[in-house]
Amino acid sequence: MFEMTDIESIFNMAAVNVKVNDIDKKAIITNPAINEFEERYIHTLDVIGQGDKVTYESEHYLVIAESVTKRHGKFKTLMRHCNHVFEIPGEVTEVLVRDENGKVVLDDYGMPEYDYIQGEPTLVPSIIDNKNFSIDGKQLRVPVNEIIIVVQDNEKNQKGFVVNKEFDLMGKRWKVLNQDYTKVGLIILTCERIASKA
């Protein structure tokens, strides 16, 4: 019977370097049956959760299946390639304008002047589909003029993709209709195409 140290030794010989939520990890990556999406199995010694972002060979993936128990001494789950990266603008900060001596600059009415500085944008790897999206064999059908966007569930994405948020994608204007949190670790957004702003 294999001991845990034997399993770890064998695992480490076959493992490659990946990042899970931007933290270096060792994993074994295998291919499932070929289908229209780039999907891979990821095997780890530590638990990996649904919604975790995996960076493998400079590409981003989202884990789309739960993995709560070990199989043969390791965890195994399914990840799907992120076919789009959103750029969410950084927060805007209000800063007092000062002169070369550090004194606050006032306007014609004696009120302080402000500069508005745009913070660094956040890059959000995502899965986008305009036909259907399935997790665990259950498919969400998408009507014409709608898309499904799947992103990692975190505070920035919850705020960045609120209902009625509008954004440009693929040369068209879209609006978030719904945020679905039924899959732990993931936000499944339903978005509809709207008329572009003039």
Rank of each mutant, 00 (worst) to 15 (best):
T69M: 08
T77L: 03
T77S: 12
L78A: 06
H81M: 06
H84S: 12
V85T: 15
F86K: 12
F86E: 08
E87H: 02
E87V: 02
P89T: 05
G90E: 04
V92Y: 07
E94A: 00
L96H: 08
L96E: 14
R98M: 08
D99M: 09
N101L: 06
N101Y: 11
K103R: 13
V104H: 06
L106C: 02
M111N: 10
M111S: 12
P112H: 09
P112T: 02
Y114W: 07
D115N: 14
Y116Q: 04
E120I: 10
E120N: 13
P121Y: 00
P121G: 00
T122M: 13
L123P: 00
L123G: 05
I127N: 05
D129V: 03
N130V: 00
N130S: 14
F133C: 01
G137W: 05
K138Q: 11
K138N: 09
K138W: 01
L140C: 03
N145K: 15
E146H: 14
Q152K: 12
Q152R: 13
E155W: 10
E155Y: 06
N157F: 04
Q158P: 02
K159P: 00
V163G: 03
N164D: 13
F167P: 07
F167S: 04
D168G: 09
D168I: 00
G171A: 08
R173H: 02
K175D: 03
V176Q: 10
L177K: 15
L177E: 15
D180M: 07
Y181D: 01
Y181P: 04
T182S: 15
V184R: 12
G185M: 00
L186E: 07
